[in-house]
Structure formats: structure tokens, C-alpha cells
């Protein structure tokens, strides 16, 4: 990128890696619902969202390639766990449907706000791509919202399940907004307003919805973001996911597809 100086390139790479890795890993988790969805429509929904997310990650890896990183397949399939920058929430196993649904709700509203912010980015190639993604993620937030609304009101069991998953995931979700070492550069150069702004905007969208559905989150002073993922610290769940995801690729990395 001609307008980037060295520091800005590092900052842009860090930003691209975390977004791309979040989408690749959650995309892979979503794909695990293929064949297992509680309804055929949900099976298809999670499979479609998986396809969207993995496709979105691919174009972000292509941007990284333009900035000098290896090509998309190499980056996606040959890094070890410590080189991934996804937040820990996305790597957690799919669990029960209510768990995957609440994670999908928390994640996709954050992705939508992130894309809104990045659509105004000075990094034009990124802005162009996320404008495209905005149209796609609207269907994801719509889907999440529909089911959150229905299941939080259906009966006591469904409400309890959604509330319990929310309790389990809230601090995990706050880990999406872990700050990186380049927040200042990203903001000054107009690439990205930063994780703090993103988090505030996400809260202003998500909290009123949760309240509307009769769901609660703990008081702010109890919030403890699960950080570390952006710096390559991951749970024991990521490596088995990578092993499975890369199994076919690893049998012959030089194969032509």
C-alpha cells in the first residue's frame, strides 16, 4: 500500500489478522452444525453463515497477501495455534444450540458494527470489501435476532438456556475488543477508530436488545474480558480445531485444487 508507512503496515496487518482469524475460526465452528442442526432450516442457516464467514476471511487474507504475507491458503492452513489472532470466544466448541446461538448473536452484532466503522476507513481496499460484507452480515444479525427473540420468550426452559449461555459467554464476548499494540496508529491514520469505540457502539446495540428479551448481564464492575486471543494465547480447544481444519491440506500441501 503506497500510502502506508512501516508502522501503519504493521498496524493494518494486526487488524486484518484478527478479523480474518475470527471469521475463519467461527466459520469453521458454524460448519460443525452441518447435519446436526435442531431443524433443517437451522442446519442450513449455520452452514450458510459458515460459508459467508470463511469467504469473508479469504478476501481479508488476500489483503494481507497484498501487504506481503503468504497467500490465503498458506496463512489459513499452515500456522500453528500461537500464530492465530482470533479471540478465544470463537474457538470454543459449539456446545448446545443455545450456546452457539448466543455466541452468534454477540459476535455478529460486533462484526456488523466493525464493518460499519471500517467502511469509512482510509484503507480503501479494506473499506471496499467490508461494504460488501455489511450486506451479508445483515442476514446474520437478522437470523440471530429472530431466534434470540423467540427462544428467550418461548418457555421457561428455553429462556433459562439462553440466559445461562449468555452468562457463560458475556466475558468471552468482551474479549473480542481486546486492544492491540497499534490502536493509536490505526486511529491517527484513519484506518480504524479502535476497539474501545467498537465496544461502546456494540454495547449500545446489544444491551437494549437483551433488555427487550428479558435477559440480563452482570453489573459493569463484574465484567472481566477474556483476553489473550489477540496475542496468540488460546484455549485447549483451538489446536484440535486446527488439526481437523487442516487435515486434508496437510496430506499434500502442494496439491492443485
Amino acid at each position: 500500500m503506497d500510502f502506508f508507512n512501516e508502522q501503519q503496515v504493521l498496524a493494518a496487518k494486526e487488524l486484518l489478522y484478527k478479523i480474518a482469524d475470527d471469521h475463519l475460526i467461527l466459520g469453521h465452528r458454524n460448519s460443525e452444525w452441518t447435519g446436526l442442526g435442531p431443524l433443517l432450516e437451522e442446519d442450513i442457516a449455520f452452514s450458510s453463515m459458515a460459508q459467508d464467514k470463511i469467504g469473508q476471511s479469504e478476501h481479508l487474507y488476500n489483503l494481507l497477501h497484498d501487504l506481503g504475507e503468504a497467500d490465503a491458503d498458506t496463512v489459513a492452513f499452515t500456522r500453528n495455534k500461537g500464530q492465530f489472532h482470533c479471540c478465544q470466544m470463537v474457538e470454543l466448541p459449539i456446545g448446545t444450540y443455545d450456546f452457539s446461538l448466543v455466541r452468534h448473536f454477540l459476535f455478529d452484532f460486533a462484526a456488523a458494527v466493525r464493518f460499519d466503522l471500517l467502511a469509512e476507513s482510509s484503507y480503501e481496499n479494506l473499506a471496499k470489501i467490508v461494504k460488501k460484507y455489511r450486506g451479508e452480515v445483515k442476514y446474520h444479525t437478522m437470523h440471530a435476532n429472530t431466534w434470540m427473540m423467540q427462544l428467550s420468550a418461548a418457555n421457561e426452559e428455553s429462556h433459562t438456556r439462553i440466559q445461562n449461555s449468555l452468562n457463560e459467554l458475556w466475558n468471552q464476548a468482551l474479549g473480542m475488543f481486546e486492544e492491540g499494540p497499534y490502536e493509536g496508529i490505526l486511529k491517527e491514520s484513519g484506518i480504524f477508530l479502535g476497539e474501545k469505540v467498537l465496544k461502546e457502539r456494540w454495547l449500545s446495540v446489544v444491551l437494549p436488545l437483551l433488555e427487550k428479551y428479558g435477559l440480563t448481564v452482570s453489573a459493569v464492575n463484574y465484567w472481566k474480558p477474556v483476553n489473550g486471543g489477540r496475542a496468540g494465547q488460546h484455549t485447549e480447544h483451538l489446536q484440535p480445531l486446527l488439526d481437523e481444519m487442516c487435515e486434508v491440506f496437510s496430506t499434500d500441501p502442494s496439491a492443485e485444487w
Binding site: 432450516e41 450458510s48 460459508q51 451479508e136 442476514y139 437470523h143
Partner: peptide
């Protein structure tokens, strides 16, 4: 609408 997702990414049911 039954679901915003269908047999391909560009279709709803």
C-alpha cells in the same frame, strides 16, 4: 419468509 438462508448463499426460503 421461513429462513433467510437457502440452498445457496444468495437465496432465502
Amino acid at each position: 419468509m421461513k429462513t433467510p438462508f437457502g440452498p445457496t448463499l444468495c437465496r432465502s426460503m
